[in-house]
Design a protein around this nucleic acid. Structure first.
Length: 424
RNA sequence: GGAGAAAUGGCAGAGCGGUCGAAUGCGGCGGUCUUGAAAACCGUUGAUCUGUAUACACGGAUCCGGGGGUUCGAAUCCCUCUUUCUCCGCCA
């Protein structure tokens, strides 16, 4: 969420910037400013009265100590009406505080100045591309046939065990998952990330911290008996490590990497393009998360983009990097790069990673701050994250792009991890 | 799951109705000493909101696990939730 100070000081700037995200902010901001000023007015009144109250209470203490009972009783009389007033004022404050908070969290993050306006995927800006497009024969198969042909992923079995979108990986299919996870984690470690293995269920506070709650709860599986949520991404537990934490500036950037399964209900998003591995309820992903100094967070972002680019290159997949336009960016992001790999039999680009800088937007919810050495003041840190990488679509692309008459070739970098060079 | 105990500043740990944002120790920061370092000694040491000449300088408010209550006044008393520890049970 945006800070109230920014809203107070840069109202017009915010309204202009949010136009890039096609968001009309003026009305909300006016409501926020009105609520904020009445909040402050009431708050400073109650603060004054409370101060008076504290003064009298101390006085009573002193009088009683001196044995002046009557004077103490007289002083008590004075507090009764004051107490009433304080109570009624602070009762007024509660709904105002709530309304204010509810309004503020409705404002999306400001897009970075490099973000182009636009309404959807067509307006995204291609930054660069790489890799070699494979030439497949006429008889090339999309991955949903390949997985049956080689018996490596079984969707029907998943339906039996759980439901649609919960595949069962078998034999070399399972090993390929394990190989990719290890490969991604090892590459992350080489790039200076600390490996983290977090819980895959989180509480409400964590859901709020990274912005899944209160709005997107329909997208998460909810264990209602204990009020836990299955994580949609490792971003949630890993970023929440830094909730209510004050870091020292010399620790930044903090770099963590985590493998977790991810669970998404994907309510209402099933359609023609979601066959096979393209969209699942449960999938595996390795996520990188950085907490950065505001002055250097865009360096961190570039560093993360370079890391992900290294991964897709090493896997020998044709890819392109897009800078998302305002309309295609998430609510919380200031700047997002999407990575897509070419899935040669489907003849489609598949999104496999989304790397974002949230600047202080998440940090403000999380209260993730840092302090410069010798400085009294705390400041909000910047948070960033990106997939490095999500597995299913990478697997889809590997299967499709590397298919041959005699089987599916495993990319060279993975062979030490799989222990085989061919799925056949 | 049952019984009991506890939750205080970065950490350890006192306080158990008024002068407590909180003793003391450790740690951190600054200094003295030293060629330098250590030791010793001295000083300093949280967060949030808010007012003023927008200055973290001064003033006010709030925060002792979370929420609620009693009281003129709560870290201290009561209720409730959460968490941790010990014992018993169960268990990968």
């Amino acid at each position: 969420m945006l800070t109230i100070n920014l809203i107070r000081e840069k109202k017009e700037f915010i309204i202009e910037r949010l136009k890039v995200k096609n968001f009309k902010a003026e009305e909300i901001i006016n409501r926020i400013l009105a609520l904020d000023s009445s909040r402050r007015e009431i708050q400073s009144k109650t603060d004054m009265m409370q101060g008076e109250m504290n003064r009298i209470s101390k006085e009573i203490g002193a009088l009683l100590k001196d044995g002046k009972r009557d004077e103490a009783e007289a002083a008590k009389e004075k507090t009764y009406s004051l107490k009433e007033e304080i109570k009624s004022l602070s009762d007024k404050l509660i709904p105002i505080d709530n309304d204010l908070k509810n309004e503020i969290i409705r404002l999306p993050n400001l897009p970075h100045e490099s973000v182009a306006p636009g309404h959807g995927a067509d307006d995204n800006v291609k930054v660069r591309e790489g890799g070699i497009m494979p030439q497949l024969s006429e008889t090339a198969l999309p991955h949903w046939y390949l997985i049956k042909k080689y018996d490596i992923i079984d969707f029907d079995l998943g339906i039996k065990l759980t439901g649609a979108g919960f595949p069962v990986y078998l034999g070399k299919g399972a090993k390929l998952q394990r190989a990719l996870i290890s490969f991604f984690l090892d590459e992350g470690e080489k790039a200076g990330y600390r490996e983290v293995m977090p819980p895959i269920m989180v509480n409400e506070d964590s859901g709020f911290g990274t912005g899944q709650l209160p709005d997107k709860e329909g997208q998460m599986y909810h264990a209602t008996l204990d009020n836990f949520y299955l994580i949609p991404t490792a971003e949630v537990p890993v970023t929440n490590i830094y909730r209510d934490v004050i870091l020292s500036a010399d620790m930044l950037p903090v770099k963590n990497i985590a493998y977790t399964p991810c669970f998404r209900r994907e309510a209402g998003s099933w359609g023609a393009h979601v066959r096979g591995l393209n969209r699942l309820h449960q999938f595996d992903k390795v996520e990188i998360v950085q907490i950065a100094h505001p002055d250097h967070s865009y360096l961190s972002l570039e560093d993360m983009v370079a890391h992900v680019e290294g991964l897709v290159s090493k896997l020998e997949l044709p890819y392109r990097i897009l800078r998302l336009c305002g309309g295609d960016m998430s609510f919380t992001s200031a700047l997002t790069y999407d990575f897509e790999v070419w899935s040669a039999a489907q003849k489609r680009w598949l999104e496999v990673s989304s790397v974002s800088n949230f600047e202080s937007f998440q940090a403000n919810r999380l209260k993730c701050r840092f302090k410069e050495k010798g400085d009294k003041q705390t400041r909000l840190a910047h948070t960033l994250n990106g997939s490095a990488l999500a597995l299913p679509r990478i697997v889809a692309a590997i299967l499709e792009n590397n298919q041959t008459e005699s089987g599916i070739k495993i990319p060279h970098v993975l062979i030490p991890y799989t222990g085989f060079d061919m799925i056949d």
